[in-house]
Design a protein around this nucleic acid. Structure first.
Lengths: 113, 113
DNA sequence: CGGAATCCCTAATGATACTG
DNA sequence: CAGTATCATTAGGGATTCCG
């Protein structure tokens, strides 16, 4: 969790997105609904505890919608809310910049980062 | 520091920008050069140790340029490199999204975040 | 002024096991 | 399946002091 500075307008947004896995979660939900297990698998090596924590935070901040299906065993679907969708330009920017830094400047290649 | 997931293309960029104060540093350098002390003051309550650490990392990754002026006592100026300037679209995205979430959805108002 | 060197310490993450 | 509960860990950040 990052510490925001005084007048920097990015503060709250940084605080929202800085916990581990947060941006990746939004990334993988960008195209639709995923179940808890699918999301967990997509992320790789996140623990279910941390993933749950993150999803609860995002749900509380109305970024992510949680839908429990009345099956047995229960299935839980996660998707982005309208507010969550508003975050996608940030993801786009990350994506575009990543590509550019890699292609034009060779960043992210060796062990630089 | 965030843990990147497998196929998410944002991984390296996230890793680059996730340490505390990193985005704020870039934000305050966006319009030109700042001395160490000025940057420290702009950020608010960052310790000199952490700020130095962050600047060294950014310098190593060619995001930030460090220039020592031959004065006594020495002055050190920091500015964005060409690569650093490439990151500004990300900052723009943060900024625009922050405003939108605040104005249209009332996020970031109370203690929500 | 701009750090380097210490020491400290908590929040955040992770591993494991268990459950409705 | 989708979590909770517990415990362990650690590394990231902070406070302080001192230096050229």
């Amino acid at each position: 969790m990052q510490k925001p500075s005084q007048n920097c307008p990015l503060g709250p947004c940084i605080k929202l997105l800085s916990p581990a896995w947060t941006l990746e979660i939004i990334y993988y939900l960008r195209e639709g609904t995923l179940r808890f297990g699918e999301l967990r698998q997509a992320l790789g090596k996140v623990s279910s505890k941390v993933l749950t924590t993150r999803l609860r935070e995002l749900e509380k901040n109305r970024i992510v919608k949680r839908k429990v299906l009345p099956t047995n065993p229960p299935m839980v679907e996660y998707s982005l809310t309208d507010i969550g969708l508003e975050l996608l330009p940030i993801l786009d920017a990350f994506s575009k910049v990543s590509v550019k830094l890699q292609n034009e400047y060779g960043l992210f290649n060796k062990n630089e980062i």
